[in-house]
Design a protein around this nucleic acid. Structure first.
Length: 229
DNA sequence: CCCTGATTCGC
DNA sequence: GCGAATCAGG
């Protein structure tokens, strides 16, 4: 899989939007998390809260980072000394990551987010939809500035809609609305077997070639067209 | 263990 | 330029 302009655009958008490398890799398909990170660096858009880099200690004379690579025939020398045993307390990990929310509470606006500086969660669709048509440079899709930060948990409005995280091989990936909008989601219907869309949207995505002169107006392809995996 | 991003380095 | 292997922190 090569890095096309579209894929790079998707990478940038998601990376800058705070999506993790894994999410991006999964979304793009055909690439690994490492590939995404590597590409991001080559694009010059690194810098994001990294667990490792958060460290600010200045270890003056640090030993050369040697790796005792057991699998690589590297020419490295100076084996790494033995590790020191460390006691690890019971880890407490608990963070809902999937977008499942069936909350029974009324769809009222919960408490306003007191910390609006949370990482925004971006909605980037299949194929990377920065393009509206083959020719025209993305005329920035409608003014969707008045958008609120999407909370970490799905908001009530989209609780029952197919979000980016709900995409699978079995649901229709046809985008509904525009990315960035609070209610942006995906069709979510059962797919037409063998296609990324449901029957209805397959009809929109794939149209028979009509004889010359009898062409219909441009078919409304989704952003960038169907993904090819 | 899992996750994360950063870095290295052979290709 | 690419990305697997590796490192290293949470």
């Amino acid at each position: 899989m090569s890095w096309t302009d579209e894929r790079i655009a998707t990478l940038k958008k998601m990376w800058e939007g705070g999506a993790t490398a894994s999410q991006i890799a999964d979304e793009l398909g055909g690439v690994s998390r490492n590939a995404v990170i590597g590409k991001a660096h080559r694009l010059g858009l690194k810098a994001r809260p990294s667990p490792v880099k958060a460290n600010d200690k200045k270890a003056a004379a640090k030993k050369p980072a040697v790796k005792a690579a057991p699998k690589k025939p590297a020419v490295k020398a100076a084996p790494k000394p033995a590790e020191k045993p460390i006691a690890k307390p019971a880890p407490k990990a608990e963070e809902p990551r999937a977008a499942t929310a069936a909350s029974s509470s009324v769809p009222s606006q919960p408490v306003p987010n007191p910390t609006p500086d949370l990482p925004k969660i971006v909605s980037v669709g299949p194929g990377g939809f920065l393009r509206q048509g083959p020719g025209d440079q993305q005329a920035p899709i409608p003014p969707a500035p008045p958008r609120r930060l999407v909370p970490a948990k799905p908001s009530p409005e989209i609780a029952d809609k197919t979000s980016l995280l709900d995409l699978s091989d079995k649901v229709c990936r046809w985008p509904m609305g525009h990315p960035g909008e609070p209610d942006f989601h995906f069709c979510g219907e059962a797919v037409n077997p063998g296609f990324p869309y449901c029957v209805e949207h397959c009809g929109r995505a794939y149209q028979a070639q009509l004889p010359r002169g009898a062409r219909r107006p441009p078919p409304p392809l989704p952003f960038g067209g169907p993904r090819v995996r």
